[in-house]
Design a protein around this nucleic acid. Sequence first.
DNA 1: ATACCCTTATTTGTTGACAATATTCAAAAA
DNA 2: TTTTTGAATATTGTCAACAAATAAGGGTAT
Lengths: 227, 227
Amino acid sequence: MAESIISTNQTNADRISAALLDDIINGKLAPGQKINEPALARAYRVSRGPLREALRHLEGLHLIRRTPRTGSRVVTLSRAELVEIYQVREAMEGMAARLAAGRMPDEEIRAIQTLLEQHQRQIEDNAGREYFQYEGDFDFHYRIIKNSGNDYLVNLLCGELYHLIRMYRLRSARIAWRPQRALAEHQMILNAIRDRDGEYAEILMRRHISTARKNLEQEYLNEADNL
Amino acid sequence: MAESIISTNQTNADRISAALLDDIINGKLAPGQKINEPALARAYRVSRGPLREALRHLEGLHLIRRTPRTGSRVVTLSRAELVEIYQVREAMEGMAARLAAGRMPDEEIRAIQTLLEQHQRQIEDNAGREYFQYEGDFDFHYRIIKNSGNDYLVNLLCGELYHLIRMYRLRSARIAWRPQRALAEHQMILNAIRDRDGEYAEILMRRHISTARKNLEQEYLNEADNL
DNA sequence: ATACCCTTATTTGTTGACAATATTCAAAAA
DNA sequence: TTTTTGAATATTGTCAACAAATAAGGGTAT
């Protein structure tokens, strides 16, 4: 595997960077939490040098915010900021769907079809376990994006934007999530790609994400009422 | 000014980061050039610690590429990669223009109108000095983006994507650049924004960038013929 | 009780040194 | 002449210690 080769060549700073990314996304490092460099360095068994390089990297991914001479904190994404991200996501992923429709190999389309059928079974089997359904949602979107053929776009979405969305997901139990409806929309998008109808695939993808964004905005307004 | 306050509080790593960014964009650090950490550190009068933090930051901006244990180089953007970036830019800036049409203050529209009239005079006065016309082009686009109201989008375009474009501009003397035509398109976009017609502003902006992208693709093909 | 100052302790930013790895270059072998 | 080998050289990654700044704590005055 390429990954094992890479990981052996990786530096400590790279490894810590990946570990911290994981801990932030999975909530082990909570939003708003202060980063204590000496403590973190001890916890990860490295010195502050590589740790600080890792922190600079995560700062670039907008996962931590740093204030000179006072320290870093894990970012706390407001719902308004998430809405902004969804707005960007809508434009970018719509484009990804259009491009993918023009170049995704037939066998990849079949593979994603199989994925969607798995999701259908998951929804029927364990209606309560939302976590895996979230992950399934991400799986679908990642595979569309990766088949866009635009590496800059792939990196932007999978390497930056999606980290923020995944991070937010954890502490928004209230977020509206209708797996059955999402799956139906995924199926329609895949059908458009299968028919090589890029224009339609883009429209469907934009609607799909736009719906999610509007739910977010709606909950934002409800939230404001309750204050 | 806010900047002076920030700059006094900035760390060395932040200052070097900004200086390196500048040097890369202005060609003092050429594309493909190897980064020699001890030499660079001496040149900027800092130790390797802050320098390496700055390099991690620039790596996140895709301005340098690092290979573990062998070092970093200033990125060399292929024309194909630039085309990918323009493709993303088309979607993002189209969106920015649409959003800006809905919320740009009237006085800001008038200010940009004044800017365009300056550009017209610049084109008439010194037909040869392309540099300033490039910068004028950037000025226009920056101001539309900054009025989109979406901070994530602003940071993505002005803080990441545009650095790469500005960097490429230097070593592409052959790049097609028709200032008079670009200015006419700028004027149409601003008119659409003035009329609060976001949909039309988006279409015009997309066409504007799409034209530039197609020129790039065309030159890419010509280049391939000459190999 | 609250606000303020001063001392103490912690944390950040930075440095120079060291070990491990990669690169260079010259001599030897094919 | 080209390739290969191996020592010497340079560079990267890492660490521990130091200086400067910030945060914390305790006592005093209001």
